Computed example of a mutant assay.
Amino acid sequence: MLPLASEGDGGGSFVGPSIGEFFPPIIAFAGTPFELNRVMLVRIITTVIIIVVFSLLTRSLKVVPTRWQSVLEFGTDFVRVGIAEDLLGKKDGRKFLPLLMTFFFMILAMNFTGVVPFVNIAGTSVIGVPLLLAAIAYFTWIIAGLRKHPGKFLRNALFPPGVPWPLYIIVTPIELISTFIVRPVTHTLRLLMNMIVGHLLLVLFFLATSFFFFEANGLYKLFGIGTIAFGLAFTVLELLVIVLQAYVFTILTAVYLQLALADEH
């Protein structure tokens, strides 16, 4: 049987991606609270780009929109109408629109860096950003609920009306864990794990493509055609996941706000 790769030709065994991909070396300010690695740099650059793009596109809005203004309005109307107002109504939707808008476009942009050539890692694929955004969402809906229903929010959340009193022994711990502990954890992990898995899959296919084309021997090189085909297919799938995860995170935030503000509380 032919060897997969020849050591004498400078080739070697295939080494796939690892979790170390998400902890790249420090590139600046090592040993200080401001140390930067590639992921942090991607996040900073992405944030600056978002601010600059929105500033430029909203500086001189026209009654008859330009092409880029139309794209901006499509995106903002999608969040405003499809998420904020649809779930929260016009009054509350307008109140929380800046938060929901920030979540959607920030996550969308940072997810997108995972498929940008020579960047190839999402700003949301390390827990810092997903955890921060989930924490902001968590405290926002709790504070909103306490302000809207100061005397009933926590009581009704932990002791749902209409449940027979003896059942609270079972229901209250379940509500406490599911609402105030599991909810923010799943809100964080859903975004994080999708970005981690997407990155690892893409890196796996394209590393395999490079290995088969440039290091494998003989007919093994033909496997590179399959791996690059799968890599391109998963890139298209990842683009769908990028948009979907921004939407899911934002709409779940709106759902939690809706539940906190509901009159039942």
Results as ranks from 00 to 15, higher is better:
149 H>G: 01
154 L>P: 04
152 K>C: 05
123 G>E: 14
131 L>M: 10
146 L>H: 06
136 I>T: 02
140 T>Y: 07
157 A>R: 07
135 A>Q: 02
151 G>I: 07
141 W>Y: 15
133 L>S: 00
133 L>N: 08
160 P>Q: 00
121 I>F: 13
152 K>Y: 07
159 F>S: 10
132 L>C: 13
138 Y>Q: 11
159 F>W: 08
148 K>E: 14
150 P>W: 02
131 L>A: 15
125 S>A: 15
146 L>M: 10
122 A>S: 15
148 K>H: 04
130 P>V: 12
156 N>I: 04
123 G>R: 12
141 W>S: 03
149 H>R: 06
151 G>T: 03
157 A>S: 15
144 A>M: 03
129 V>L: 14
145 G>Q: 09
131 L>W: 00
134 A>W: 01
127 I>M: 10
158 L>M: 04
121 I>T: 12
137 A>Y: 07
122 A>N: 13
136 I>C: 05
129 V>S: 05
138 Y>I: 03
160 P>G: 01
159 F>Q: 10
159 F>V: 07
127 I>P: 08
128 G>Q: 12
123 G>N: 03
129 V>H: 02
137 A>R: 00
140 T>E: 09
154 L>D: 05
123 G>Q: 09
131 L>N: 10
146 L>K: 10
143 I>K: 11
131 L>G: 03
121 I>A: 05
155 R>Y: 15
143 I>S: 10
159 F>G: 00
139 F>I: 08
140 T>H: 01
147 R>K: 13
147 R>A: 12
127 I>D: 00
141 W>D: 12
148 K>Y: 07
156 N>E: 06
126 V>M: 12
145 G>R: 08
149 H>K: 09
135 A>G: 13
156 N>P: 04
